[in-house]
């Protein structure tokens, strides 16, 4: 597990990570908030569907893509937590995206 050495007087905010409400330090990065609660899975690998997790923590690998308030492909390491934020590990893969497109075009017909 990751652990926090943050000084005690920090204010906290509540956010929802994968369906669970948790308290996290105000100003945390979303990735740190997730990792400190054991939620280290971010996205799935696009082709194989294998689980992935953050790699660089500074915005250059795009492994930390998650869904924030319903919007996919947000970089957790560059996002700052906000009160009431909803975050989910995302399960988009090439296959699921293709299925989604197929469904959309079928719905249009």
């Amino acid at each position: 597990m990751f652990r926090s050495l943050r000084k005690p007087e920090t204010q906290s905010v509540s956010i929802n990570i994968n369906g669970q409400m948790v308290q996290v330090a105000e100003g945390s990065s979303l990735w740190a908030a997730m990792a400190l609660h054991g939620e280290t899975q971010t996205r799935l690998a696009l082709v194989s569907g294998q689980q992935r997790s953050a790699y660089c923590a500074m915005g250059v690998c795009f492994e930390c893509l998650v869904e924030v308030n319903g919007v996919p492909n947000q970089q957790a390491c560059l996002t700052t937590v906000e009160e009431g934020m909803h975050v989910c590990s995302q399960d988009l893969t090439e296959q699921s995206i293709a299925a989604l497109h197929q469904k959309e075009s079928a719905d249009h017909e």
Partner: peptide, 24 residues
């Protein structure tokens, strides 16, 4: 290098400086 649990040393520093977060 793509497996969960593998990160960069720079990321360890980023997490420490920004969030005071560490991994034993």
């Amino acid at each position: 290098w793509h497996l969960p649990g593998v990160m960069t040393a720079g990321s360890a520093q980023v997490m420490l400086k920004s969030d005071g977060m560490v991994k034993d």
